[in-house]
Structures are given as C-alpha cells and as structure tokens.
Simulated scan of single mutants.
Amino acid sequence: MRYRGNHGEGQRRRSTAALLAAYHHRGDRSARTRVIEQNLPLVHSLARRFWRPSEPLDDLVQAGTIGLIKAVDGFRDDRGRDLGAYAVPTIVGELRRHVRERASASSVAELEEETLAAGARSQAEVSETRELVRAALDVLTPRERRIVALRYYRDWSQQSIAAEVGLSQVQVSRVLSASLAKMRDRLEAA
C-alpha cells in the first residue's frame, strides 16, 4: 500500500483550490474571505517569528494579513503551487516592511513618548512637547506632512497612502524615511 500523506492536508488544499477558483474565475468575494480566514494561522505563525516585546503581535498579524490578501489576490492556480508556498514570501515581505517602518519611526516616536511621559507630571512640559513635535512637522513640506499624518496618526499602510496621494509605494517609503530624518534632525537641534 502506498503512503498517501496526511488526508486532512490534501482535503484542505482541494478546498482552498476550489475557493480560489471561485474567487478568481467567478469573482466570488465570499470565497476570497474564506480563503483568507483559512490561512490566518499561517499569518499568526509567521508573525510570531518577528515578534519582539516592543512590537505588538496584533500589529504584526495585521501586516502579515495584508501580505496574505495580496497573495490571495495575486495567486494563480495554473502555476502548480499551493497557496501556502506562494503566500509565505509575500507575508514575510510585508512583515519585514512593517518592522523596517517601525524601526525608522521609532527614534522620533520614542523621543515623543519619553517626553510625553515626563510631561504628564507637568502641563508646561506637555505643551513644550507639542511645540517640539509641531516644530519638527514644520520642517516638512505640506505633502510630507500629509504623508506622515496618514501613516503615523491615521495608521494607513504605505500602499493606501500611495493610492491616495498618487505615488508608488516605494516613493511613499522614501518620502517617509526622508521626512522622519528631517524631523529627527529638527528635534535633535531643539
């Protein structure tokens, strides 16, 4: 008798393939949702690899889920791969991008957080902190301020910001990096 592998795994793959076909060939959005839900354990597993005490796991799962959604939308079953193998690099890419973005923003955010925590004891210190942040934002162009606000105050993804302001995701990433560097320089000078 030949070994046929895990029966449950094969059934899951067939179910996923049928749902993906329903989504890609017939536009069935509920099938897309079910595929995403079925593959969330993969996202959680990969997100846990990137988790650090300073990084909320929920944020990582959210970033990984964006990668999963991109993988589901971009997957074509005629390439002979299963969704899991196709999705892992996309999910990991989103997780890395998220960690990179958070690291570049962390120095400004940490400075603001430390100053706000100390300022909680004194309204004057809180006002001073707000003025420092405003001054740091003032060194930015209106477009840079808008992009920074969408990313860090409204928590939009770079891809959403890119669609909103008419840039590519790579351009948004560059604008954010340059803006944070300008703000950091301003804060250090103050």
Rank of each mutant, 00 (worst) to 15 (best):
E131A: 15
R81S: 13
E9F: 10
S45V: 01
T33I: 09
A17E: 13
R52M: 11
I91M: 08
N39T: 01
T115E: 08
R52D: 08
S160K: 12
L187A: 09
R26M: 03
G93K: 05
M183G: 09
R49A: 09
A118R: 14
E188W: 03
A181V: 06
Y86V: 03
N39D: 09
R12Y: 01
H98M: 05
V92A: 08
V35W: 02
A189M: 10
R49C: 04
Q158C: 12
Q159P: 00
A103V: 04
T141I: 08
P41C: 06
A17F: 04
R76E: 11
I161N: 04
W51Y: 11
R102P: 00
L150M: 14
A181M: 02
V170M: 06
A178F: 02
S54Y: 04
L176H: 01
L132R: 15
A149T: 14
R145N: 09
R12K: 14
R2V: 11
G80Q: 10
L60D: 08
K70Q: 13
A118Q: 09
A21F: 07
N6M: 07
Y3I: 11
S104K: 10
Q38A: 15
A18V: 02
S179Q: 06
E55F: 10
E164G: 00
L68F: 09
R102A: 12
R48W: 02
T129D: 00
E94K: 13
R184D: 06
R79F: 05
R174Y: 08
D82Y: 08
A124V: 13
S45P: 00
P41K: 06
R2F: 10
Q159E: 15
T141H: 05
I161L: 07
I161F: 02
G74W: 00
Q171H: 12
D28G: 03
R134L: 13
L40V: 14
D77G: 15
A21D: 11
I147H: 05
Q159W: 03
P142C: 07
P89I: 02
R49M: 05
A21S: 14
P142M: 07
S173D: 10
A47W: 02
Y153Q: 10
R97V: 00
A109D: 06
A117D: 09
A109Q: 13
V175L: 04
G10V: 01
A63P: 12
R4T: 11
A189E: 14
V170R: 14
V133E: 03
R184H: 10
E112K: 03
L68I: 08
L176I: 15
R184F: 01
W156H: 11
A47Q: 07
R96A: 05
E37T: 11
